[in-house]
Design a protein around this nucleic acid. Sequence first.
DNA 1: CTGTTAGCGCATTCAC
DNA 2: GTGAATGCGCTAACAG
Lengths: 343, 343
Amino acid sequence: MAGVSAGTVDRILHNRGNVSPASREAVERVLAKTGYKYNIHTSAVSLKKSYKVVIAIPTAIKGEYWGNIRKGIEHALEEYSDVTIECEYAFYDQFDIYSCRNSFSSIPEMQPNAVIIGATFISETQILCARLEEKGIPYVFVDASIEGTHPAATYSSDQHICGRIIGRLLNLFTPRDAELAVFGSRRIGNERASNSLARMSGLAEYFQELSYRRVIKESKIFEQHPEESTRNILQFLDENPAVKGIAVLNSRGYILADILSSNNIKDIKIICFDLTENNMRCVQNGTLSAIICQRPELQGFYAIKAIIRTLLYNLPEKGSVHLMPADIIIKENLPMYKEIYAE
Amino acid sequence: MAGVSAGTVDRILHNRGNVSPASREAVERVLAKTGYKYNIHTSAVSLKKSYKVVIAIPTAIKGEYWGNIRKGIEHALEEYSDVTIECEYAFYDQFDIYSCRNSFSSIPEMQPNAVIIGATFISETQILCARLEEKGIPYVFVDASIEGTHPAATYSSDQHICGRIIGRLLNLFTPRDAELAVFGSRRIGNERASNSLARMSGLAEYFQELSYRRVIKESKIFEQHPEESTRNILQFLDENPAVKGIAVLNSRGYILADILSSNNIKDIKIICFDLTENNMRCVQNGTLSAIICQRPELQGFYAIKAIIRTLLYNLPEKGSVHLMPADIIIKENLPMYKEIYAE
DNA sequence: CTGTTAGCGCATTCAC
DNA sequence: GTGAATGCGCTAACAG
């Protein structure tokens, strides 16, 4: 130690004032020279403070997208178990804006030290964020970011590029003269599915840049009415026999895959999103050609890590957006990802 | 605390005897009931012992496969910097068994607390492992495991399955009637390239299982003599104009890609291994269709983690083999992986 | 503004 | 066989 004593150094590290410029400079010089590295764990031990983190995300169903985000969160809590974090989940129905409004409105009253937000509805999220900022509560986004907010960090994927990926794969997987189709999900009410939109724009962009034309049809899956939906889909395929590749812009590829296989329709390549249990089954049995996965576990894991950093270091994160890689999963590498994600 | 005192508990946790069965049982009961969780970091702080780890791998060139393993190792050392680990690299030329023998022979004398081994030559590795076991020095494999050894853990990829992946992609990327080619590397001397062999067998297996036949030609890249090699390759392509897809079973796909693009040959899809800088460049400019990547960084990272576990917990790892996922990288998702791996 | 003190979970040493 | 004492890096609270 060159100059002053422990307490002072601590004050400087956490810049909580009451330090003379002289000592500050002296200490900072030594810090830089010795390459001082802060130790989160012993710090946590000493603090022995417990933090409350509210996780505001769509209902986390095991084996589905948000369930995997949750898995990552839980994994991180275990890895950093010296930091005492008490998690409280505030789930909402991602298809119901009222459920979201309801859930979000109660969050500031829960007195959290930090919040993880899985945003679906823009304005609801903006309102929540404004309230959190008022109270000085830091928050982190997973899955998507929302404009007009100031998160400590964001962990998401570039949906536009994911759309391009699906475009390229579909193009590679099918002969040039085959037609293609894009399926979204029909939803109740004036739902905006921003992820699907971004994916669609990426896909469209990819095909526009090709030197040749591809015929691309559009249709929808209507989950709420399976029988009707199945009839529509079969009719669609009947009317478009040249369609040999289908992009499903959400995690519902397995629905299409199951319909095709139970109607003995082969030779149509289907690609969709998210490593859910149903999709894994279909990749395994060959009815789904590929899945694009955006590492939900890693997003959850990193979100907790970022929160620990903001809560322990006083310095706030720079609010940067961290993009997850989009993994391409086919039958052969599926078991490897399964294992990793199960860990 | 139910019954005894701190010192005794410690003796039990690290089972170093001098404990009465009575106290042992009492403590163990409490441990189980309270779900006691050992804290590596505070333990490390208290120990304040420094460990020496020797890393015995092929020369780690920045931006290439072993360079990325090294990056993962360094990343882990930073993440776990409360454990004082002093690393010493013992590089060898993976194409030269004498260099390996030479390097390996000096390792036991370096008095390491643990060793990370990137194995290429079977018998040399077996000899080294036997010596380490004699001295009770734990070791961890990255990239590949070697039979007849007893590593604390192994982090590698399933090369056979990687071969199948390349098979499927090539099959998907090219029309059925197109011919395919497989390229290995010609090497000096009686080199065995076990990775290439396993990949080849996986690829062959994949095509055998298809319901239709694919014509698959074989050839080699001869790195040591680029001009001759280029001539051979061009001649090969000239003689086999129906070849529309090429699998390169190692990281040298860029060599082929560069030859093709500088000779204005298009419409041939090339797939190879490893996210090296040259390969990334070719994927970016479209001359390489896909890369299979086996997360060398993660292997290095996990290897250090495993070593920390073995050195701090007294209980040895179970020697299990941890398989890395095989990432499929194309132009669109390349930047995402680049960023992740740069971190 | 600054130094001192006590204590977090853990491990070793040394009496008893 | 066991407990008490000491110290690791860190922080908060308090005394000056």
